[in-house]
Amino acid sequence: MQPSLYVSLSGQMALMRRLETLAHNVANVNTAGFRAEEIKFDELLSQRTEQPTSFVSGGSTYISREAGAAVRTENPFDVAVSGDAWLAFQGPNGPVYTRDGRMTMTPEGDLRTLNGYPVLDVGGGAIQLDPNGGTPVIARDGTITQGQQQMGALGLFTIPNEARLARFGNSGVLPDRPAEPALDFNRVGVMQGFMEQANVNPVSEISRLIQIQRAFDSISNSMTRSEDTLSSAVRTLGDTNGSS
């Protein structure tokens, strides 16, 4: 097979990977706190041909940390995080970090995510409210009060920029490096009565889907032309050998 066909095939495989990530992003455009999935491609240089040949790598995916838009809900159990910080809840195997700040209180006063996981304070402990204490008030630093009594504080955490993030559900992440408690509440904080939308721009993502489809078709046409040229050359060579 001609090297150009291998190059084209690597390009198609890269486009398929990108198409999968875009489709996943579009499917979660209405998921609160969702972080879009991006993919990074590198050039691979092969020396196994007469001339060095560049191929496209399979690509490595990563989760975008860009913030989504905050929208007002007026629900006192909804919070949106401002700045580069994350809330935490207790997952099956340890803390999970999220930007989805929609919460609920059980009849016993346990503060939980909408999926039923305990919301954590900065020390990693579950937060307990007074089920008869009235509507909670949540300050920018996460402090929760009911009436005049402080009941606890939402944990706010920062994740190192170099940490790789793995998904937990649709809007949770698991970093491969420890998260640290946020300390500078001038830079980060929470806004009560708001929720954060997905950081996916549906118009932009659909435009990318169209571009990828066109690029895929262009590569397919190029591969077809290359195969036709090769077949024609083989037939011509066969006719020449036969006539001689």
Results as ranks from 00 to 15, higher is better:
Ala198Pro: 00
Asn170Thr: 11
Pro178Asp: 12
Pro92Leu: 14
Ser232Phe: 08
Thr98Lys: 02
Thr158Ala: 11
Glu20Phe: 06
Thr61Trp: 05
Asp141His: 06
Gln150Val: 14
Leu120Lys: 00
Leu45Pro: 02
Val7Asn: 04
Leu15Asn: 09
Asp184Val: 05
Leu87Trp: 09
Gly242Val: 10
Ser171Thr: 07
Val29Tyr: 08
Gln12Arg: 10
Leu237Asn: 12
Arg102Thr: 08
Thr143Cys: 10
Ser204Lys: 12
Thr143Val: 14
Gly242His: 11
Asn25Ser: 11
Thr104Glu: 15
Leu5Tyr: 04
Leu114Pro: 03
Thr61Ser: 13
Gly94Leu: 04
Ser222Gln: 13
Arg164Glu: 11
Ala88Trp: 06
Phe41Arg: 00
Val173Asp: 02
Gly169Cys: 03
Ser244Leu: 12
Phe185Gln: 04
Val79Gly: 04
Asn75Cys: 07
Asn201Cys: 01
Gly33Gln: 01
Asn170Asp: 13
Leu5Lys: 00
Thr106Ala: 09
Gln149Met: 14
Phe89Asp: 08
Asp78Trp: 02
Leu114Ile: 08
Tyr6Leu: 15
Ala215Ile: 05
Gly33Glu: 00
Arg17Gly: 12
Gly133Asp: 01
Gly142Trp: 03
Ser244Pro: 05
Gly124Met: 03
Ser222Cys: 08
Phe168Lys: 11
Gln146Ser: 09
Thr236Gln: 15
Leu174Tyr: 04
Leu237Lys: 12
Gly172Gln: 05
Asn75Ala: 13
Gly109Trp: 03
Asp217Leu: 11
Gly33His: 00
Pro107Ser: 05
Gly124Trp: 02
Asp78Leu: 00
Gly142Ser: 08
Gly123Val: 07
Asp100Trp: 00
Ile138Val: 14
Asp176Val: 07
Ile212Tyr: 01
Arg102Gln: 14
Ala27Tyr: 05
Glu196Ala: 00
Asp78Lys: 02
Trp86Lys: 07
Asn28Tyr: 05
Gly83Lys: 04
Val234Glu: 14
Ala36Asp: 02
Pro76Ala: 10
Pro52Met: 05
Pro3Tyr: 03
Arg177Lys: 12
Ser82Asp: 14
Tyr97Pro: 02
Ala233Gln: 15
Pro52Asn: 06
Pro95Ser: 10
Gln148Val: 14
Val190Lys: 01
Arg99Met: 06
Ala233Gly: 09
Ala67Gly: 08
Met103Ala: 03
Asp176Tyr: 07
